[in-house]
Simulated assay, not measured.
Amino acid sequence: MDSTPHGAAVTATGFGVKGPRGWAFQDIDITAGPGSLVAVQGPSGSGRTCLLLALTGRMKSADGTAEVGGLPLPKKRAAVRSVTALAHVPGVAELDPALTVGEHLRERALLQGRFGSSLRALLRPRHERRAEARALVDSALAAAGLDPEALPKGTRTSVRDLERLEALRLSVALALIGAPRLLAVDDTDLKLSDGERAAAWALLRGLTAAGTTVLAVCSEPPEDGEGVVLVHTGTRPDRNTPKGASGDSPATSDASDASDATDATDATDATDATDATDEQDSTAGKHDGPDDEEGAADALAETGRA
């Protein structure tokens, strides 16, 4: 396991996820050091979201090898989930439009205090725990560049009233409350103007400068590609013919991708109990949501774009 104090290195060789109907993605190679910005680019239906979920331990791979922070996938999926966080992923880590900004922040802080802390921390005086939660929230908001007081109704602003970039910043802030070593962001630049897209990439670059590794799904990588690890999903002329029988390809139709990823996720359910048992020591004091796998499947079925 690597000794980096914060950001997690990400490596993958021939990495792929497959369902009974074909490959969601295949033959992915990545070499990214701690604190890297990894941009995942590809056409709709090419497995971008599946890759994001697989590299954060939410979906089981079927081919190749990968490591996140020195933790091998898929063997240490639960441990990988404990050091990674998702932002902006429909059906898995999405904002509730009916809730306010303040309600989202309080809920995430409570969850972090309950499931992300040691037993000793839970036994501390209530005022100490509240102060720590407030500090976590303030730090996350600052890192995400979101000032609640600048919103129309402050923390009482409903999510449905947020601009697209503001919603992205809030989603990132919520993920950062858990101090992940790797932050995975889906649809980073979806429906953003040129100026908003530049601001979104500036936000993510700021996180990597502070040491957090960022994995961002996008339609277009940042204009200034210096230091960016670019990963392509889907069939490309300079790639080898995808492996596998029956003409499977990494880029299938939108509907097929959603179904295949759901099938691939469902097929792992029987092994989850074994994974959790094998990895109890490495995940003590961490909360692995019981519906991680179901959430991944729901997200892909809902978006139809992964």
Rank of each mutant, 00 (worst) to 15 (best):
P5A: 13
P5I: 09
H6Y: 03
T11S: 05
G14Y: 01
W23Y: 12
I28G: 15
D29V: 14
I30T: 09
A32C: 12
A39H: 08
P43Y: 07
G47A: 11
C50F: 13
L51Y: 07
T56V: 14
T56K: 04
M59G: 05
M59A: 13
A66T: 11
E67Y: 10
E67I: 06
E67P: 00
G70D: 11
K76M: 10
A79H: 04
R81Y: 00
R81H: 10
H88S: 06
V92H: 01
G102P: 04
L105C: 03
L110S: 05
L111Y: 12
G113M: 07
G116L: 10
L123T: 05
P125E: 14
H127L: 13
A133R: 15
A140C: 00
L151N: 04
V159C: 09
V159M: 02
R164C: 07
L165W: 03
L168N: 04
L170I: 00
L174K: 03
L176V: 07
G178H: 07
L182A: 06
L183T: 06
V185T: 02
D187K: 06
K191V: 10
D194S: 10
L207W: 01
T208Y: 08
A209P: 01
G211T: 13
T212S: 04
L215F: 06
A216V: 05
P222C: 06
P222I: 05
V228Q: 10
T233M: 09
N240R: 15
G247I: 05
T252P: 08
S256H: 14
D257Q: 12
D263M: 04
T268V: 00
A270G: 01
T271D: 09
D272Y: 02
T274Q: 11
T274Y: 07
D278N: 11
K286I: 01
D291N: 09
A296R: 09
T303I: 00
A306D: 14
